[in-house]
Simulated assay, not measured.
Amino acid sequence: MIQDEYFSVHAGLTINVEPLDDNTACPDDEAFRLEIPPLFRVASECSELEESTERLLSNFGSDDSKALIGYLGAQNTKINLLLSYVLSQQDDPTIRFTTRTFGASRLSFISPTPLTLGRNARIKLFLNDPPAAIYCYGEIIDCQPYGSQSGDDSDNSCDKSNYEVHLRYTQLLESDRDLLIRAALHVQQKLLRERAQQRSDS
């Protein structure tokens, strides 16, 4: 599957985006792997372990296993809370943004200043479900005045001083891409449940 085939969802994730100098290239594969901070590696491995544990626990069905499942679930919740707190310390407020859309191949966010097309950026994404943080690189592939796509100049709700920036991942671990797919699916499933609930209420 090529990158553009991954779907994106509208959701707000906390991200850090650090544009590099215009002439600075992304690191190659080996340098990128060595550069990833240890905490981000731990977060990725914990999320993978959580997924495998969930699959294992789904095979338990007897009444005797309910107490064990409850206990393991409580321990997992504690670990996730601790992990989320530790990862939050990696968030740099000076380069913090919130995604408009995200997926396993690209993301978009609103910037107060325009960014140069083709410029590379160092990115950190902080996921809520599953709780994790992703370290990667991306290339700026689009930057437009926010709201200009609507074609309606009478829409005063759009702040023309901001810019909608689209980034395409250029260095991203495959395990982290899987995390982004899971996170996007979680958002999509949540939206579907909310729509179903709204229909039943009406």
Rank of each mutant, 00 (worst) to 15 (best):
G138V: 04
T94K: 14
P112E: 02
G70S: 04
A67E: 15
L56E: 03
E139K: 14
D129C: 05
G118N: 04
L115K: 14
N80C: 04
N80M: 07
S47G: 03
T116M: 06
S154I: 09
S65C: 13
D63Y: 03
I69P: 09
E48C: 01
E139C: 02
P93G: 00
L87M: 13
R119C: 11
A133V: 11
S157H: 10
A121H: 11
S52T: 09
F60S: 05
N76R: 15
S88K: 13
R100S: 08
S44C: 15
A133I: 08
L127T: 13
A74L: 04
F97H: 05
S62Y: 12
C158A: 13
A133S: 01
R122W: 00
S84W: 06
Q90E: 09
S148D: 04
L87C: 06
C136V: 08
T99H: 00
N80Y: 05
P130K: 03
E54D: 07
E50Y: 12
D153R: 13
S157D: 08
R122N: 01
P112F: 00
N156R: 11
E54R: 14
P131Y: 02
Y85H: 12
I134H: 07
P130S: 01
N59E: 07
G118C: 01
S148W: 06
Y71I: 12
D92N: 10
D153E: 02
E48M: 02
E54F: 07
T53A: 08
S62M: 07
C46E: 11
A74I: 09
P112G: 03
N120A: 02
N76A: 04
D63T: 12
A121G: 15
D91N: 08
E50C: 13
S111P: 11
I69H: 12
D64A: 02
L107S: 14
C143V: 10
I134S: 00
L81V: 12
S47P: 10
R96H: 11
T99K: 09
S44H: 11
K66Q: 13
G138N: 02
S65T: 13
G147I: 01
I123H: 04
F109I: 06
Q90W: 08
R96L: 09
E45G: 00
S105G: 06
I141E: 01
S65W: 11
F126S: 03
R122M: 01
R55Q: 15
S65D: 10
T113N: 04
F126P: 14
R100M: 06
L56A: 04
C46H: 14
D155G: 10
G103Q: 09
V42N: 10
N59Y: 08
F102C: 05
